[in-house]
Design a protein around this nucleic acid. Structure first.
Lengths: 226, 226
DNA sequence: CCTACCGATCGGTAGG
DNA sequence: CCTACCGATCGGTAGG
């Protein structure tokens, strides 16, 4: 141990001039420093995992010194919880929005959405959450679950249950019509698995678009209506 | 730092008598201490993740002192690589065995296995690898991939390619017959996703058996032959 | 939000 | 495979 060595990580952006750097207007006014920490944490947790990411990594990525994240979050665990809650909040909003838009356009020609069309909307929205822009939060939730405390799991589980609840009647209807074979509860888990796994192999620079993936998923899982 | 504090983790099994414990015949003769380290590492890496597991945790779980794992493995990263390689070796063996047995019984009544029956065998074997006894190794490979070095990834990828190769002609045949809709390459990724995700939710104490899951998977993904 | 720092823990090693 | 230890890093904090 070397008791005289101070922290030395100094972000480049803060070294352009000597002394305490001026903050730009963009950085100064509101509480968006907290957002910067949150987004940096989400990105690093996704790339390296929770345990392999130090709070110093996060501070540096947000352009701060090592102790500063603790001004915004009580501890590292709370930061992970905040990433997951923000991820679920945003996913729920995107889902509600997608379903809402689809229902409206359905009402326009006085024809209710088919269960198949509903599933298409849910799948497409889920793929955006997983693979679209700003998509670090939910993958962290999916793959760092074990790093949560029991209390945090309970909180996030409430949001997760909300998210999954939208799928249940759709899958039930498809099962009733014969378009979805097998127990709908297991089917939901399998479909989520197929989709969630895409974060391990999907490359945005690849040829397949999210629309391509959506259609493939429907082809794979659904039978012809009888 | 307290330079006088020695490592204090002392496994219970070594405290039954005073002084250096006698090893039982079971422990003494062969190199199964290496196996003990490997299995302890697999279990802990699966439960807690690679970065969150200390080599001291592993040593204690194997009934050793903190420095002893490094007698068997060069460093922590090599231990992770060994877990994954052992996992793939064992998975390949189980797959080859399952396919071999199925083909033999098919030849007995001079009828070649249908592609559907082939897929059933592959799915069932994969579920055993993921959820059966001694199933810590492959989940570690699936969910700790990012902790590998580039060199290690190349090695494990060779085994993984072998494993996946067995699926390709089967899925191709099912696609040709119309039983599997959508691009077979994407279908393979989706099926693996659906299966691999089961390690996140499957509870052996639950009602569903691996046979149940296998049938559900076939129902979900396959159409009637035309 | 930074400075300066602490106690704990970690991966790893020399020598037996 | 154990003993005894090292240097580095980590999460977190007091005080400003």
């Amino acid at each position: 141990m070397s008791p005289v060595t101070p922290d030395i990580a100094v972000p480049d952006a803060q070294r352009r001039s000597r002394g305490r750097p001026r903050k730009t207007a963009d950085e100064r006014d509101d509480g968006n420093r907290r957002q910067a920490v949150l987004h940096a944490a989400a990105r690093l947790f996704r790339q390296q995992g929770f345990a392999a990411t130090s709070t110093r990594d996060i501070a540096a990525a947000a352009g701060m010194r090592s102790g500063s994240p603790f001004y915004h979050f009580e501890n590292k665990a709370a930061l992970l919880g905040a990433v997951m809650q923000e991820g679920m909040r945003s996913a729920l909003q995107r889902q509600a929005n997608a379903v809402g838009v689809a229902v409206e356009s359905g009402e326009a020609d006085a024809r209710p959405l088919s269960a198949r069309a509903c599933l298409r909307v849910l799948v497409r929205s889920h793929l955006e959450v997983l693979l679209g822009p700003d998509s670090d939060f939910i993958p962290v939730m999916l793959y760092e679950w074990r790093s949560l405390t029991e209390v945090q799991r309970t909180e996030v589980n409430r949001l997760k249950a909300n998210y999954e609840a939208a799928w249940v009647p759709v899958l039930q209807a498809l099962h009733t019509s014969g378009e979805l074979q097998g127990d709908p509860g297991l089917a939901r888990l399998m479909i989520f698995g197929a989709l969630n796994w895409s974060v391990q192999w999907y490359d945005a620079a690849r040829k397949a678009t999210l629309d391509d993936l959506t259609e493939t998923v429907l082809q794979l899982f659904l039978k012809e209506p009888t």
